[in-house]
Amino acid sequence: MDIVFTGHVIEWRGPSPFYFVPLPEEQAADVREVASMATYGWGVVPVEARIGAVGFETSLFPRDGGYLLPLRKAVRAPEHLAAGDEVSVRMSVRL
């Protein structure tokens, strides 16, 4: 399943900051349809994603009925991403 969306980078403060892009509701609904076939525990869904020139593998985190796409520093730094930036994401769920 291929998914394309735009969203804003958010920062989640904790012991160390984490950065995510929330999936829009329409795309989150698409992921929910295949999540049971893809998840490997507590609802995380493995994906391959691309933002700009950076491709990466990660897992979507379930949150409040939707999903968050984590952005590691290895993704943020080359694309110069910070909280509040709008990004275009191309992603596929790994079944």
Rank of each mutant, 00 (worst) to 15 (best):
1 M>N: 11
1 M>I: 02
1 M>G: 13
1 M>F: 08
1 M>A: 13
5 F>E: 02
5 F>P: 07
6 T>G: 14
6 T>A: 11
6 T>Q: 15
7 G>S: 07
8 H>K: 15
8 H>I: 10
9 V>E: 10
9 V>I: 09
10 I>G: 05
12 W>H: 09
12 W>D: 08
13 R>P: 13
14 G>M: 03
15 P>A: 06
15 P>N: 11
16 S>W: 06
17 P>E: 00
17 P>L: 05
20 F>D: 04
20 F>M: 01
21 V>Q: 01
22 P>M: 05
23 L>T: 04
23 L>P: 10
27 Q>N: 12
27 Q>T: 03
28 A>H: 01
29 A>E: 06
29 A>M: 00
30 D>K: 13
31 V>N: 11
32 R>F: 07
32 R>S: 07
33 E>G: 04
33 E>K: 15
34 V>D: 01
34 V>E: 00
34 V>C: 04
36 S>R: 15
36 S>H: 14
36 S>L: 03
37 M>R: 15
38 A>F: 10
38 A>G: 14
39 T>I: 00
41 G>C: 13
41 G>Q: 15
43 G>Q: 12
43 G>K: 13
44 V>W: 02
47 V>N: 06
47 V>S: 09
49 A>E: 08
50 R>V: 05
50 R>C: 10
52 G>H: 05
53 A>Y: 07
53 A>T: 11
53 A>L: 11
53 A>H: 11
54 V>P: 09
55 G>M: 03
55 G>K: 14
56 F>V: 00
56 F>A: 06
56 F>I: 01
57 E>H: 14
57 E>L: 11
59 S>Y: 08
59 S>L: 01
60 L>Y: 00
61 F>T: 07
64 D>A: 14
64 D>H: 13
64 D>Y: 03
64 D>C: 10
66 G>L: 00
66 G>W: 05
67 Y>S: 01
67 Y>F: 12
67 Y>K: 02
68 L>P: 11
69 L>T: 04
69 L>G: 02
71 L>Y: 00
73 K>L: 00
73 K>V: 00
73 K>D: 14
74 A>G: 11
77 A>Q: 15
80 H>M: 09
81 L>V: 10
82 A>C: 10
83 A>K: 15
83 A>C: 06
83 A>F: 05
83 A>G: 09
83 A>S: 13
84 G>R: 09
84 G>W: 08
86 E>Y: 09
88 S>E: 12
88 S>C: 06
91 M>D: 00
93 V>R: 02
94 R>T: 04
95 L>K: 14
95 L>N: 02
